[in-house]
Each structure stands twice: as C-alpha cells, then as structure tokens.
Amino acid sequence: MSQPVVLATASRRKPLWRTGVGVFAALMIVCGVLAPLLANNVPLCARVAGQWSFPAFADYFGSPPPGPNDLSWKQWWSRLGPGSQDFAIMPPWAYGPGETDPALYRAGPSFAHPLGNDGAGRDVLARLIHGAGTAIGLGGSAVLLAGLFGTLLGALAGYRRGWLDVVVMRLVEIFLCFPILLFLLFASSLLGDSSLGLVLVMASLFWTSFARIVRGELLSLRERDFVLVARGLGISERRILWHHLMPLLKSQIGVTAAFCMASAIVAESTLSFLGIGPGQAASSWGNMLRQGSDVAYLGHWHMWLFPTAAIVAVVMCCHVLADRVRSRATEQV
C-alpha cells in the first residue's frame, strides 16, 4: 500500500541545493568568496572630494588603499558631517579581520560584537567570515585541481587499460602510503606560507581518491553492452568515454569531492592549529582556535567555541552532502 506513495515523493524530491544542507553550503561558499565585501573596515564604495573609490574590492588584489587625510577609512567615515558631499557605503558588517582595538581585549560577546573579540581586540565574527574564505578558497581550489587531474588519469587508466593503468595505479599506491598530515607537515615547512604551494600539495594527495573511484567504475562500465553498441555505431572512443560513460559517474565524483573538501578543510585547520602554513598569515579557523584553546579555560570561551562550531558545522555539512548525493544516486537506479 505504501509503495506508490513513497515512489511519488521520491520522484518529486527537492533539488539538493534547496534543502537545508544545500542552503548552508551555498551560504558558506558565498561567505567565503565575498568575505572582503561582507565584513571589512573599509567602505565598499566611497566618494572623497568628488573622487570615487572602492577600497573593499581592492582586498581581492592586495591591500586596500589608505583612507583620506591621514585618517583610517573608519575614522574618516565617522567624522563625515551631515551636509558633506562625501559619503561612504560600509559593508554589512563594518569590522575588518585585522582591525585591532586594545580596549576590547578578549571581550566577551556583546551587542556590538555578538561573537566577542580576541586577544588583539579583533572582531571574532569578522575573522570567522574571512576564515571561511581561507578554508573554502584553499580547500575548494585543491579539490577542484585534484578532481580534474584525478578524474582525467582515472578515466584514461580505467578505459584504456594497458601500461597507463599499471603506472597510474602504482602512483596511486605511492601517494596512499603517505600519511596525509605528515606529508602536509613537511611540505608546508618547505613552502612556508605560500597558499599556492599548500593547494598544490593537497591536490597531489587528493587526486588519488578520484582516480581510484573513476577507474574502478569504468572497469566494469566499459564491458557493458551499450559501449559495444556505441562502438559498433562507429562512435569514436574519446566520445564514448567522455559523453557516454563519464556522465554516469557524476554522483560518484560529487561524493568524492565532498569528502575531499571535508578533509581539505580539516587538514588546513589542523596545520594552522599546529602553527604552520598559510593560515598563519590570514584569518583561519585553525589559527583562531589555536589562540582560543589556550585561553578558553580562563573564561574566554567565546574565542574557542565559535571557531570550533564553524569547523564542525562545515565538515559535517560536507559529509551530509556526500551522503545525500550517494543516497539519491542509488534511488535513481
């Protein structure tokens, strides 16, 4: 009796990006990408003596220009008279991640700073938002790179077989041997604070999962009858691989990407928690936690709790997304 009802709901499932996790993930990505425009102590758009400038956007290319008349942008903004021709539009959250205020040393949550301030008087919320940028920027680019490279190699190895397969699988095994954290540790000691270096190293660790999954699936898919039919119709091997077979692996690749994203974020925050890597220079959750966990037992719990919550929430979000994609894929079959 219940069977038709279940099927009916299953076929009319919401798309993934409209479910709770999907919305949260999208929000996190938006937060990360737009961090300099969401939380900053420089205006999005300002008019100074008839000149337009967009200091917050300059964060994407380097440091924003200093404020007018030897004042910081914020001082200048707060002194703007009502009749002035000049004006500024501040970001929605008008505190920067590096904006220090000695008066607010480790201040707890208050109305003006709902998540409190850290040891240098920096706003925790602003740092969290910028930390999302660090985590998602580093993790996302590493996973993207790893996904492209791993999928390509895995597809060629699984579909073409032969010597390429042997070489790729040996490479995979070599990289599987490295304990991720040990490898990242010594890699980042070589690369110093270079973000590009960390991305490359993480990508070089994560491509193996993509390659293994894609190869494993293709090994069985390539023996299926529809491939034989396609070949009989004279469709080129390349077209069979990329147009007929790879679209079938979309969900598997998505699941792998979500898991890799979670481990990339964990790896980045572990590194900056241990005091190495590019997270040291920028706002990063691991770095905030490093400072927070030292003082949490003194009663400054807010410096520890919020970065912890951010990391756990994002990692869990990745895991839930992976789970959903997987269960939906099996539902369709």
Binding site: A296, I311, V312, V315, M316, H319, D323
Partner: peptide, 24 residues
C-alpha cells in the same frame, strides 16, 4: 557516528582537554 566523523582529531583533543582536564 556521523557527528563524531565531523569532529577532527585536534578539535576532539582540545575539547576533551577543556572539559575533562585543566579547563573544567
């Protein structure tokens, strides 16, 4: 288990230290 999988080791360690050790 799902929740536990989302907690990285260094977070677990700091949490345990804070709750069961020096912190509380």
């Amino acid at each position: 288990l799902f929740v536990l999988a989302g907690v990285p080791e260094f977070l677990m360690a700091t949490m345990l230290l804070l709750v069961f050790s020096a912190g509380w």
